[in-house]
């Protein structure tokens, strides 16, 4: 009903890879590409969040522009001519993938193998990856130790396990800002985490690197929900993966309604061996838009902590 109150939107026409396409005014180039079925790689983009346009893997070439444009955030304009597979585009996408894959552990980013192959990316060419750095959280801004170039610098750091609900493995962090946005103004408004530091040393941090139980975190897990790389993960998933027993193919995903308050949040229960191993919420449901609170996200354990009567 409320949709009826929205003013009708104007349609505009543009050209992508020689094909003409009509989109609503305000739609992005990415949206236009999707209408045409053009598969655009994305990593930092999330359907439920404002585009951070930080990873730049979705860049396209807009005729007349000096530099490439991020498809995820650049609004389509009438008469625009866009190339999504030009040599410049392919080069930058390939390089972005190489730069990321050589500095971040992308082993739990599902799209990565496909992307690397599609763009013939060779991340290993920058040298063997540097080992984890236990001091990564406390780097002095604007300073670094001069490298010898014999290893490729990485963001690897020890895994953070400081609570019983979820794990933070920032070796897998591509700094997409999604967790910060979800914890912040776009959803949860708790602001427990933020990007700290600068440049290659930029990282997600609490104030003074506080452990989560000392921080503002309310364990809604909305950061886990938006994390594209598995840097943030349920303890249950982390443990099963560590044991080599995470079997996505054997899991069922069932949508139901949270058993707690009366808001009616939809839960997607990920079940393996009759055990809930993860809880998500549908991105496209307008009650939650993918978000939950601590009870919805983690309060399921009572059903499996019961003694069999």
């Amino acid at each position: 009903m409320s949709e009826l109150l929205l003013a009708p939107k104007r349609m505009i026409e543009l050209e992508i890879d020689g094909q003409s396409v009509r989109v609503f005014e305000g739609e992005t180039i990415l949206g236009a590409c999707r209408r045409l079925g053009i598969d655009t790689p994305t990593l930092c983009y999330g359907d439920t969040l404002e585009p951070a346009n930080a990873c730049r893997v979705c860049v396209v070439e807009v005729e007349g522009a000096r530099v490439l444009a991020p498809a995820c955030s650049r609004k389509a304009e009438a008469g625009m001519k866009v190339q999504t597979d030009s040599e410049r585009v392919r080069h930058s996408r390939k390089m972005v993938l190489e730069l990321l894959a050589s500095s971040v552990d992308l082993s739990t980013t599902d799209e990565i193998p496909g992307y690397l192959e599609r763009y013939d990316a060779q991340p290993e060419r920058f040298g063997p990856p540097a080992p984890p750095d236990p001091d990564r959280d406390r780097k002095r801004t604007g300073h670094h130790v001069e490298p010898d170039g014999q290893t490729a610098a990485t963001v690897y750091a020890p895994v953070k396990i400081d609570n019983e609900l979820y794990v933070r493995d920032y070796s897998k962090c591509i700094l997409c800002y999604k967790c910060v946005d979800a914890c912040g103004e776009q959803f949860q408004n708790t602001f427990a985490i933020h990007v700290a530091g600068r440049g290659f040393d930029a990282r997600i941090s609490t104030e003074y690197v506080a452990e989560l139980p000392d921080s503002a975190c309310v364990y809604c897990g909305n950061c886990i929900a938006v994390c594209p790389t598995g840097a943030l993960m349920f303890v249950s998933e982390h443990a099963l993966r560590a044991e080599g027993d995470w079997r996505e193919d054997d899991q069922t995903v069932t949508t139901t309604v949270c058993p707690y308050c009366g808001v009616g949040c939809n839960l997607e229960l990920h079940v393996q061996d009759n055990t809930i191993v993860k809880v998500t919420s549908p991105d496209d449901h307008d009650i939650t838009r993918g978000n939950l609170c601590i009870k919805g996200r983690f309060g399921f354990q009572h059903v499996q902590a019961r003694d069999a009567p």
Partner: peptide, 9 residues
């Protein structure tokens, strides 16, 4: 229900 899961809160 809620006392059957554990959290820092």
């Amino acid at each position: 229900q809620t006392n059957l899961y554990s959290s820092p809160l």
